[in-house]
């Protein structure tokens, strides 16, 4: 069973947000680095640099949240693991809870 801290994206420091966006990008299927960057640009409105992207990818991979597939020429696609999906669901639930709390307070103000 995975330890809680291995799934905690907050522990990634400045790579927490890129890591979350990578997990979101891989949620609908495997993608290689360039496709992930383009997808993040569409979803979040900014393109993470290669240093940031692979800093986050190495962290996700070392914790077993994503896994590389067989390479296509020089490109290596990555796939979300079951552990990664669990971590993504947990993070999105936490974000939703915070957003809901914010909305409720604004409605009362």
């Amino acid at each position: 069973m995975a330890k809680k801290e291995e799934m905690d994206l907050e522990a990634f420091g400045r790579f927490a947000e890129p890591a979350l966006l990578i997990l979101i990008s891989l949620a609908d299927g495997p993608k290689h680095g360039y496709a992930i960057t383009s997808d993040i640009a569409q979803v979040a409105g900014f393109r993470p640099g290669p240093g940031t992207l692979y800093g986050a990818i190495s962290r996700l991979e070392s914790r077993g949240l994503i896994v590389p597939l067989a390479s296509e020429e020089r490109r290596v696609p990555y796939q979300l693991t079951a552990l990664g999906e669990k971590a993504l669901r947990a993070r999105l639930a936490a974000i939703t809870a915070v957003a809901e709390a914010g909305r409720r307070r604004l409605a009362r103000a």
């Binding site: 995975a2 991979e61 070392s62 914790r63 077993g64 896994v67 290596v76 693991t81 079951a82 552990l83």
Partner: peptide, 14 residues
């Protein structure tokens, strides 16, 4: 890069 084994095994190996 491998897809042998299930996700849990890949996670443990990583």
């Amino acid at each position: 890069p491998t897809m042998e084994g299930d996700d849990t095994m890949n996670a443990i190996r990583s």
